[in-house]
Design a protein around this nucleic acid. Structure first.
Lengths: 127, 127
DNA sequence: GCTTTGATATAGCAGAACTATAACAATAGC
DNA sequence: GCTATTGTTATAGTTCTGCTATATCAAAGC
């Protein structure tokens, strides 16, 4: 587990942590059952406050990706069958993204191609 | 042009305006050459400060979607051929979204289907 | 029993988001 | 030409978010 912080980014630190764990889980670099560092440990590694890490972990637990354990940091959960709301969430996000792409001149075909490419690209890197 | 504000949303007001104009342009509800309300006018309609609208309009102009005119509000520009950076931006956003979908249990096939559906759905509603 | 660890509480600071006002410069309409 | 409208800029204040600092508690591992 190696995480990188971009301090100059406008993206909140807790969001950067969240995003990177999500991606690691998505590509299988973090398998179900795998352990994440403890809150304090990761905070120290990233030179970040304990609460910042805790917030990221809390969001990850809320999304059902990890479970927080008293003494072992956190553990990645096996992906549960997606609730209907996950599909709805995905569609909403995607709609906004595609709308902006359209408005900025990307053709539907191009976006469809890029979409497939993104899905395939991520799945390929699943180890 | 009807815009709605969700005051309870965590999404900034200027962002909500931006998003809705983007979608209106994408769907063709706002055609190239079409006019947007003046800054003050829209601010009054939305019960929002002048600067909030101005910020949204500034971002839209920065993204090349509209041109600001001294006395006529703003005008929608014809979509220019997308710069390479637009494609890169789209791919980056999409990658993050797909990663989260994967991590939350959506299957690749399902996401590919939803993607196509989003693109088609938006294009269909183009008037 | 001591230490580690997640959890909770409080306080402070910097910056973002939003508002309130005022003023300037360009211009459309008369 | 005059006036009102409009984009633009400036300044200042308020509220909220992101982040940090510190301290404490309760549960569990060793």
């Amino acid at each position: 587990m190696i995480l990188l912080m971009d301090l100059s980014s406008s993206r909140p630190r807790y969001r950067q942590i969240y995003d990177q764990v999500v991606e690691a889980v998505a590509v299988g670099r973090l398998a179900p059952g795998g352990r994440l560092p403890t809150v304090r440990r990761l905070a120290a590694d990233l030179s970040v406050n304990l609460h910042t890490v805790r917030r990221a972990y809390g969001m990850l637990a809320g999304a059902g990706l990890i479970s927080l354990e008293r003494h072992n940091g956190a553990r990645v959960l096996a992906a549960l069958p997606p609730s209907p709301e996950v599909g709805a969430w995905f569609s909403t996000q995607l709609r906004q993204l595609v709308a902006e792409g359209l408005a900025r001149g990307l053709s539907p075909d191009r976006m469809t191609a890029l979409s497939r490419q993104a899905v395939v690209g991520l799945c390929q890197s699943q180890s």
